[in-house]
Every structure is written in C-alpha cells, then in structure tokens.
Computed example of a mutant assay.
Amino acid sequence: MSSPVETKPKRNPAWKRRLWQAVPVAVLTGFAAAAFVWGPGMAAEARAGTDFGARIACSCHYVAGRPIDQCRADFEPGMTMVRLSVDEEAQEVTASVPMLASTRARYREGWGCVLEQWSG
C-alpha cells in the first residue's frame, strides 16, 4: 500500500498579497484627488443646473399648465443628470443632481415660480 501524497496548498507570494492590498488604496486616493481638484467646479455647475431646472420646470408645470414630464424639453443640452420631483400640495418642484446639489422652486400667486432662499 502506498501512502497518500501530501500536497501543500499554494500560497500567493508576499508581493502579490501586498499588490492586492495596495490596489484599493490607490483607487481611493485617485478618487479623493479627483474630488479635491474637480469637486468645487462640479458642485457649482450642478447648483446652476438645479437652479435653472427647478425654475423652468416649475414655470412650465404651474404657470403654463404642462405635465412635468413634458417640461424636460425646455432644458438646455447637457442637463440629463438633473432629476425632477413635484410636490403638488406645496406647489413646488425640486431639481437635483444626486450627491451634488438640490434646489426648490415654489409657485406663488402673483409672483410665478420663485427659487428657495440660498443657504450658502
């Protein structure tokens, strides 16, 4: 009878383990650097887009009486990331770019659609 041959499990060399540990750190560092460099400009553009989107969609819906899904036709090119939501009870439209900016515009009799007060 022969004895079974024992095989040792293969182990990754140390350098491969260190490489796989370094990859997530490098990716996160890259994202952090990109957010630091381009973040303020992106946030400002998102805020401008939501301001415009909220005002235009509110006027389209409450002043012109069009359905909110038709109001997107009045947006400028490049505003595909702006999302709209409507609160019929409060007569307001919220435009948002996820994780960057959000703006509300409320319909006021005699005034039309007015943007919310900027908080800073």
Results as ranks from 00 to 15, higher is better:
residue 89 E to P: 04
residue 72 R to K: 14
residue 11 R to L: 05
residue 30 G to P: 02
residue 48 A to S: 06
residue 3 S to P: 07
residue 44 A to N: 00
residue 108 R to L: 14
residue 13 P to D: 07
residue 14 A to H: 08
residue 83 R to K: 13
residue 40 P to T: 04
residue 94 T to N: 06
residue 87 D to M: 08
residue 45 E to M: 00
residue 98 P to M: 03
residue 78 G to R: 00
residue 65 G to L: 08
residue 3 S to K: 09
residue 8 K to V: 14
residue 33 A to E: 05
residue 8 K to I: 15
residue 90 A to E: 11
residue 70 Q to C: 04
residue 20 W to T: 09
residue 90 A to P: 02
residue 16 K to Q: 12
residue 37 V to C: 09
residue 86 V to W: 01
residue 77 P to S: 02
residue 8 K to H: 11
residue 54 A to R: 08
residue 66 R to A: 15
residue 23 V to I: 14
residue 69 D to F: 00
residue 46 A to N: 06
residue 18 R to Q: 10
residue 92 E to I: 06
residue 7 T to W: 09
residue 11 R to Y: 05
residue 2 S to N: 12
residue 64 A to V: 02
residue 114 V to L: 04
residue 22 A to C: 09
residue 28 L to E: 10
residue 61 H to F: 15
residue 70 Q to S: 15
residue 120 G to A: 13
residue 34 A to Q: 05
residue 93 V to P: 04
residue 64 A to D: 14
residue 48 A to I: 00
residue 34 A to M: 12
residue 57 A to M: 05
residue 88 E to Q: 12
residue 85 S to Y: 00
residue 70 Q to H: 08
residue 41 G to D: 01
residue 55 R to V: 10
residue 61 H to D: 09
residue 10 K to S: 10
residue 42 M to Y: 07
residue 41 G to Y: 01
residue 13 P to M: 05
residue 73 A to D: 15
residue 93 V to A: 01
residue 31 F to D: 07
residue 91 Q to H: 12
residue 69 D to S: 06
residue 2 S to A: 13
residue 87 D to A: 08
residue 113 C to V: 11
residue 15 W to A: 11
residue 106 R to C: 02
residue 21 Q to C: 07
residue 104 R to T: 07
residue 18 R to P: 03
residue 29 T to P: 02
residue 78 G to A: 04
residue 44 A to M: 01
residue 19 L to G: 03
residue 85 S to G: 01
residue 86 V to P: 06
residue 3 S to V: 11
residue 33 A to K: 02
residue 7 T to Y: 14
residue 20 W to F: 12
residue 66 R to H: 15
residue 51 D to K: 08
residue 3 S to Y: 10
residue 90 A to C: 10
residue 115 L to N: 05
residue 70 Q to W: 04
residue 51 D to I: 05
residue 22 A to Y: 03
residue 12 N to A: 12
residue 103 T to R: 12
residue 17 R to N: 10
residue 43 A to K: 11
residue 35 A to M: 08
residue 36 F to E: 07
residue 119 S to D: 15
residue 96 S to T: 09
residue 98 P to N: 08
residue 18 R to K: 09
residue 62 Y to G: 02
residue 94 T to V: 10
residue 41 G to W: 03
residue 15 W to H: 11
residue 118 W to N: 13
residue 92 E to L: 15
residue 91 Q to I: 13
residue 117 Q to A: 12
residue 6 E to K: 07
residue 112 G to M: 00
residue 57 A to S: 11
residue 101 A to E: 02
residue 48 A to V: 00
residue 33 A to V: 15
residue 70 Q to D: 15
residue 36 F to V: 12
residue 73 A to P: 03
residue 48 A to K: 03
residue 98 P to A: 13
residue 98 P to C: 04
residue 104 R to Y: 06
residue 54 A to I: 08
residue 94 T to I: 07
residue 24 P to N: 14
residue 52 F to Q: 06
residue 74 D to M: 11
residue 117 Q to W: 04
residue 71 C to N: 08
residue 41 G to M: 03
residue 47 R to W: 04
residue 2 S to R: 14
residue 107 Y to R: 02
residue 70 Q to Y: 05
residue 3 S to L: 11
residue 5 V to M: 05
residue 43 A to E: 08
